[in-house]
């Protein structure tokens, strides 16, 4: 027989009401995220460097620096550090506590000058994960499984976002705990007791770092969905991450130096940008991209 003929046009078929927010299942988002994180845990080659990175920034560098200042009492180092403190804003200088030059120097170092560790670690880890998360599905062929599954594209995107964000942020929070302990143990006696984290650091860690992380990942996941290979994704993500680290570092330092309201304001702006970036990035994950077909987009 001749099959019934349906008029055809060259225009894409209408997509009707598919995969709207109302249909989104957070349960499936969690499933995708959990599976991705489980794969990371199973991959020693990934998490061992991650642990080393956290240890270097949160444990080794602060310990060496603070020990040198507070316990060894290296006069030359303290002198040089004290000069450095003079360039801090007056508002920041007024907050410095401590009786001795060593104490003041150690306090300033711990509270004001080691902010990069809070930014470099999560951005580096999360970017490394995010860059390969979508293109990796395509390269391994598992994108086919996801494309044929009932999971919505938004659920897959959000699941992968969470799976990229959580390891970096969790490592940072854990490292932050270790860092706080070291600072209190080494600097606390110099300033009259345990004092860390300060209010500014709490704001930095809980309010400023997460949106910067989300904003960076929104760009990285878009790249991961568009490029042809994991290697290309890593290269492109590196280009994005470096300026993001610079921006995030400067803003976080500003948040620490300024009044606590500065941190709130920076955080709000970062959250707005992050939400915008994520909503745009969500469109980057499509079934055709998971399958790796050339849709001319």
């Amino acid at each position: 027989m001749t099959a019934p003929t349906v008029p055809v046009t060259d225009a894409p078929a209408p997509r009707a009401t598919r995969e709207g927010w109302r249909d989104l299942s957070w349960r499936r988002v969690k499933i995708v995220a959990r599976s991705d994180m489980r794969q990371l845990i199973e991959d020693k080659g990934f998490w061992m460097p991650m642990v080393f990175l956290g240890a270097i920034f949160f444990l080794i560098i602060p310990t060496v620096l603070l020990l040198t200042i507070t316990k060894i009492g290296n006069v030359e180092v303290v002198s040089q550090m004290s000069k450095t403190l003079e360039v801090l804003p007056a508002q920041a200088q007024a907050q410095i506590e401590g009786q001795s030059p060593e104490g003041k120097t150690a306090y300033a170092l711990a509270v004001f000058l080691l902010a990069p560790i809070a930014i470099v670690v999560p951005l580096t880890i999360s970017t490394a994960i995010g860059a390969s998360t979508i293109v990796g599905e395509r390269e391994r062929g598992t994108g086919e499984f996801l494309a044929h599954s009932p999971a919505h594209e938004k659920e897959i995107y959000l699941g992968k976002l969470i799976a990229s964000l959580v390891p970096g942020y969790a490592t940072t929070l854990a490292g932050f705990g270790v860092y706080s302990l070291i600072v209190n143990l080494l600097v606390g006696p110099e300033v009259g007791g345990w004092f860390f984290p300060t209010g500014s650091w709490w704001i930095l860690m809980l309010w400023v770092v997460p949106p910067f992380l989300a904003l960076t990942l929104s760009i990285v996941l878009r790249l991961s969905a568009r490029v042809k290979s994991t290697a290309a994704a890593q290269q492109a993500a590196g280009l994005v991450t470096l300026p993001m680290i610079a921006i995030a570092y400067s803003q976080s330092t500003g948040a620490l130096f300024g009044a606590s309201s500065a941190g709130f304001v920076i955080g709000i702006i970062a959250w707005v940008l992050a939400v915008f970036g994520l909503s745009r990035g969500m469109r980057a994950v499509s079934r055709s991209r998971l399958l790796g077909v050339n849709d001319g987009v």
Binding site: T9, A11, P12, A13, R15, A147, H148, R287
Partner: peptide, 8 residues
Amino acid sequence: GALDPHAG
């Protein structure tokens, strides 16, 4: 439905 048709 992993891919949409352009026509038909």
